[in-house]
């Protein structure tokens, strides 16, 4: 009898313990500390292209009012867009934003689609970023008059080949490395990384290996700001990222805007708000 009693007691103890420790501890990531925050920076990244099944998987002009509406509603300081058809499409979008943003598209590489960066700061400088045979785009600006310089990159890595994603990431990081000292660098974009920590079925594929190398390579210098926000694309994929400086202490709002997609878009915008020290 005593054996059963002890086991029953232990069982109850374990249940109580499991329930007790299940309560989430206060996450340091989400702590809203206002003590030393001087400026906040709000960033948004969005691949506005279409899902694979469409004839043209690049962004469609008819969706631009909806894209502009999302941008205006959430009012980010900088927006990184991917899969635009070109400068003309960007100009339409800038028009829909009522001159509130300035923007540019990346130079044309071997791809028929373009990355773009939109910023509110009228003094922003747009810098082409050569990444192998293609280009990403960076915008350098100060979100507030006295705030430090911020560099936001819009990037788009290969959707089909993890090895190409890895070389792309290496080249991107080499370029970024030279700019990290003078600016607070944020890399935003669609990296197409296939890495789900819990999904061990991918353990033995090269894709996971290359993508985890790429991802880890970025994380050596940066922090994945949208890590806890969940999937950013259909089929339960988290492939859109905003990486920020590791010393960044305050992260405010981190959200995937899941109702924002229109038409046959397969991505949702990722919105991140951080606090910047002077």
């Amino acid at each position: 009898m005593w054996v059963k009693l002890i086991l029953l007691l232990l069982f109850c103890l374990m249940i109580v313990g499991a329930v007790h420790f299940a309560q989430p501890s206060e996450s340091s990531d989400n702590r809203a500390s206002s003590a030393s925050v001087v400026n906040s920076l709000r960033l948004l990244t969005w691949n506005i292209g279409y899902a694979e099944l469409e004839d043209d998987t690049r962004a469609h002009d008819k969706d631009l009012p909806a894209v502009a509406e999302v941008i205006l509603r959430h009012d980010p300081d900088a927006v990184a867009l991917q899969e635009l058809t070109g400068k003309a499409q960007l100009n339409v979008l800038l028009g829909l934003l009522h001159g509130k943003y300035r923007g540019a598209v990346a130079q044309q590489g071997r791809s028929d689609r373009f990355e773009a960066v939109l910023v509110k700061d009228s003094r922003a400088a747009f810098i082409p970023v050569p990444v192998g045979a293609q280009y990403a785009l960076a915008a350098s600006f100060r979100p507030r008059g006295n705030s430090p310089e911020v560099l936001v990159l819009s990037a788009h890595a290969d959707a089909f080949n993890a090895a190409r994603r890895r070389t792309y990431t290496e080249a991107l990081m080499d370029w970024v490395e030279r700019r990290r000292q003078s600016s607070a660098v944020f890399i935003a974009g669609d990296f197409n990384f296939e890495l789900k920590a819990a999904n061990e079925t991918n353990l033995y594929t090269d894709n996971l290996k290359h993508d985890s190398e790429s991802y880890s390579h970025i994380l050596r210098r940066f922090r994945d700001l949208g890590r806890d926000a969940g999937d950013t694309a259909i089929n339960d994929r988290r492939i859109d990222y905003i990486f920020g400086p590791p010393e960044l202490e305050q992260i405010g709002r981190v959200e995937v805007l899941r109702n924002a997609a229109v038409g046959r878009m397969d991505h949702w915008p990722l919105l991140v708000e951080v606090g910047l020290h002077n």
Binding site: K4, L7, L8, F11, L13, M14, I15, G17, A18, F21
Partner: peptide, 21 residues
């Protein structure tokens, strides 16, 4: 997190043992 899952495993173990007895 570790304690939570350790307790959950403990509950499985003791529960199964109790059933066994």
């Amino acid at each position: 997190n570790l304690w939570h899952y350790a307790c959950t495993c403990g509950a499985y173990t003791t529960g199964l043992l109790l059933a066994t007895v």
